[in-house]
C-alpha cells in the first residue's frame, strides 16, 4: 500500500457533484426565517434586556439560523439537536474554562473537541454547538462571570426562541415542514 497509489491521494479528488440549487421560494423562506429568528433574539437582547446584565445573544446563533431556517430537513437542524447541541456544548465550554483557563489554548481545544464528542454521544450534533463551547472559553469576562448559567441563558433560552420562530415560520409554505422529528 503506497500513499501515492490508488488510495490516499485519490480520495481527495471527490466522487460526486454538488447537490442541486434550491428554488427561489426556498431561498425567500429561508431568508424570512433567519430574519425573524435573529430579530426575536436580538430584539430581546438589545431592547428588552437593555441595561440589565442579562444577555441573550450568542455568535453561534448565526450558524444555527443557517441550519434551522435554511436546511430544515437536516438531522443537524432538528429541535433535539438545536437545543441539546447548545446546552450540552455550553456546559462543556464553561467546565473546560473553569478547569483549564490558566492555559487558554488548551481550554479552547478541550471545549470544542469534548462538546463535539458529547453531542455525538447524545445524538444532538449541531455544528453551532462547537461555537457555543468555544465562546464560553474565549468570550471574555462577561461570559466567564455567567458561570454555569451560560448553558441555560443565553445558550438554551436563545435556542428555544429560535426554535419557536422555526416552528412558526417553517410550516407556513406548503412545500416546507418542520421538524422532521422531536426525540
Amino acid at each position: 500500500m503506497t500513499i501515492s497509489g490508488n488510495g490516499y491521494l485519490k480520495k481527495m479528488r471527490g466522487v460526486t457533484s454538488t447537490p442541486p440549487r434550491v428554488s427561489l421560494s426556498e431561498i425567500v423562506w429561508s431568508w424570512m426565517g433567519a430574519f425573524l429568528g435573529i430579530s426575536a433574539v436580538a430584539y430581546l437582547n438589545y431592547v428588552i434586556l437593555d441595561g440589565s446584565d442579562m444577555n441573550l445573544m450568542l455568535g453561534s446563533f448565526g450558524a444555527s439560523a443557517v441550519l434551522v431556517y435554511g436546511a430544515i430537513k437536516s438531522p443537524l437542524a432538528q429541535p433535539r439537536n438545536l437545543i441539546g447541541g447548545h446546552v450540552f456544548s455550553g456546559f462543556i465550554g464553561v467546565a473546560s474554562y473553569k478547569l483549564f483557563h490558566p492555559c487558554m489554548w488548551m481550554a479552547a481545544a478541550i471545549a470544542v473537541a469534548t462538546a463535539l464528542a458529547l453531542m455525538h454521544i447524545t445524538k444532538t450534533l449541531h455544528p453551532p454547538g462547537g461555537a457555543t463551547a468555544l465562546i464560553a472559553v474565549i468570550g471574555g469576562e462577561k461570559v466567564h462571570n455567567l458561570g454555569f448559567l451560560y448553558p441555560i441563558m443565553p445558550a438554551g433560552l436563545g435556542a428555544i426562541i429560535m426554535l419557536v420562530v422555526a416552528l412558526l415560520v417553517n410550516n407556513i409554505p406548503k412545500t416546507r415542514k418542520y421538524p422532521e422529528f422531536w426525540i
Binding site: T16, P20, A71
Partner: peptide
C-alpha cells in the same frame, strides 16, 4: 440528482451518499 431536485428544500446529503 433529478430526484433531489423534485424534493423542495435543501437536502443535507450529497448525491453520491444518497445513491
Amino acid at each position: 440528482y433529478e430526484a433531489m431536485k423534485e424534493i423542495p428544500g435543501y437536502l443535507d446529503i450529497t448525491p453520491g451518499d444518497l445513491k
